[in-house]
């Protein structure tokens, strides 16, 4: 039986969907509840019902709440082994295509997108590649598209890039000034940032590689199935899918459609 708090949470999420068409109804309940609970104090609310009232009646509240609801910042080359494995197992096959399309789904503030763009540049593939970077939060998309990061984070990015098998220096790709590092326009020329929801939108392009890391963990089983279904539909014949290092297609209704290409790094290939 649902507790009082769970009932209020349910109503809040329904209200958000009905009013703003952002669909959190099939997000994984435990972490969704934790995020919304963390939002109560900053919005001066003592219950989800009160927050619901503010979301419905005050125009500025929802965009601010969206920042609490969506995936936080990541790091460039998070899990260097994943990127090393992309280089070793996926890149040789990507070379066989005359032009490439890559989809980074749930790109957040862009760290993963720039990591992939740099990797493709190093492998000589970026000039013929178009990367679609999508997210549901316009605010983070704007940040991702700016490609500006605190300079204090760069040391960690540089170390991870080196471990990922990078054959150039990360400093080749950004300009540091006034405590900020601005990533190169020549990378951004190959990236299209766009609003897209894995919960409500459909497929928009045929792509050879999809990277969607630590996004599916926020979805319940049904929504994971929907998202992976979109990926299957979007991928070309024998296309590649990379997910987070603790995510798995093992429990997905689409698990039969994918083969494990790099088991530990969670890189899959669509079966013909």
């Amino acid at each position: 039986m649902d507790t009082q708090v769970d009932i209020e949470l349910h109503l809040l999420v329904d209200a958000i969907y009905l009013k703003y068409h952002y669909d959190f109804r099939r997000y994984a309940p435990a972490s969704l509840k934790r995020r919304l609970t963390a939002a109560l104090a900053p919005f001066n609310c003592h219950s989800f019902s009160q927050l619901q009232d503010r979301v419905l009646h005050e125009p500025g509240i929802f965009p601010a709440l969206l920042d609490f609801l969506t995936v936080p910042v990541s790091e460039m080359f998070r899990d260097p082994g994943y990127f090393r494995s992309l280089r070793q197992t996926v890149v040789p096959m990507l070379r066989t295509y005359p032009s490439l399309k890559v989809w980074v789904a749930g790109c957040g503030t862009g760290e993963e997108v720039y990591s992939l763009a740099i990797l493709l540049r190093e492998e000589g593939l970026l000039p013929r590649t178009l990367i679609y970077a999508t997210d549901i939060n316009p605010h983070t998309l704007q940040k991702a598209s700016a490609g500006v990061y605190d300079v204090e984070r760069i040391a960690g990015f540089t170390e991870a890039h080196r471990k990922s098998g990078g054959n150039s220096s990360l400093s080749d790709y950004y300009t540091a000034a006034y405590g900020r590092a601005v990533f190169d326009r020549s990378l951004r020329e190959h990236i299209v940032f766009s609003d897209h929801s894995l919960a409500t939108d459909s497929v928009f392009a045929e792509v050879q590689l999809i990277s969607c890391r630590n996004v599916l963990i926020y979805f319940n089983g049904d929504l994971q199935d929907r998202a992976v279904g979109l990926f299957r539909e979007s991928l070309c014949r024998k296309g590649f899918l990379g997910i987070g290092s603790k995510e798995t297609l093992r429990f997905s209704s689409h698990s039969d459609s994918f083969g494990e290409l790099a088991r530990d790094e969670r890189i899959y290939q669509k079966l013909p």
Binding site: A28, P29, V71, I217, G221
Partner: peptide
């Protein structure tokens, strides 16, 4: 719990991971 992830439990007795702050 895996390194660098929070580990939570869902009502249907499943593990849920999160990369929240």
């Amino acid at each position: 719990a895996p390194p660098d992830y929070h580990m939570l439990v869902e009502k249907d007795r499943q593990i849920a991971l999160s990369a929240d702050a």
